[in-house]
Design a protein around this nucleic acid. Sequence first.
DNA 1: TTGCACCTTCAACTCATTTGCAAATCAGCC
DNA 2: GGCTGATTTGCAAATGAGTTGAAGGTGCAA
Lengths: 146, 146
Amino acid sequence: MARAGTLSLDDLKTQLREADLRATAPRLAVLRCLHDAETPVSHAELADKLAPEGWDRATVYRNLNDLTDAGLARKRDLGDHVWRFELLRQTDKHSDTHPHFVCDECGEVSCLPEGSVEIKTTRNSPVRLKERVHEIQLKGRCERCN
Amino acid sequence: MARAGTLSLDDLKTQLREADLRATAPRLAVLRCLHDAETPVSHAELADKLAPEGWDRATVYRNLNDLTDAGLARKRDLGDHVWRFELLRQTDKHSDTHPHFVCDECGEVSCLPEGSVEIKTTRNSPVRLKERVHEIQLKGRCERCN
DNA sequence: TTGCACCTTCAACTCATTTGCAAATCAGCC
DNA sequence: GGCTGATTTGCAAATGAGTTGAAGGTGCAA
């Protein structure tokens, strides 16, 4: 997942306000973490990261859900029963189907570039398969666990 | 999920014993329900269904996990954070790497022809991605649920 | 038929997530 | 900048899916 460069505090505030959310300190912290994350992040990871800064778990939860409801982030379960949150980038908002690679040894999730997996239409494949798919998941062993 | 016809009690018992599990009454009840199910079933659904017959929730849980550990069933999360169990049919036990399409509405899993999904090596994708992947899963709405 | 390892049951427990509510904070307005 | 009402936060307590321990019951190989 390409980062849109480093965003200033004001950029983040603007992003929140455009989504009709108040720009509160914990909200900004959550948003910043999601921006910095290379891969989808679980609530627990985020809460642990933000606890030292003094933010409450419940607040992190609520904000994660607020961001999701507001359409800034997306919440998904990569098959391991853990909610992971991922920022929806501007460029993604319409057709974000970049694939995820899930390591079934360590559980690490990584994002693959959009287009790195191609769905082909073959004689035997269901019609309009490509349009119906909204998530592509590859499972295997990550480099580290191999 | 196609049904393999109606199985007799003895068939079910044999199935369990072949998996090194004792054929106990609650176990048989769970197995029968899974056989009868058209789509993956959650623990809660199964527990509710079996409670009137007198079986304990914990027993249903343990059996569901036992069947899964024994390789008779499979446990998956359709993206709604609910574990659903489905019987592994003989024909599912194949080891090739054809992709699966999972309907996140009804949970139906269908097999796609091998080669209908191509993993491309792009500039940004991790090296040797293709060799590391041993399962490809596409998620979306199946034709029926659409 | 018997022995015992495997199972079931029930209640108590864990742990992620949610909720209620008083106090704190934000944003628009003077 | 200070004021005000609506939103948000922080804390603690509630919820609920899923798990576990212990004691008694049962399938099944010998």
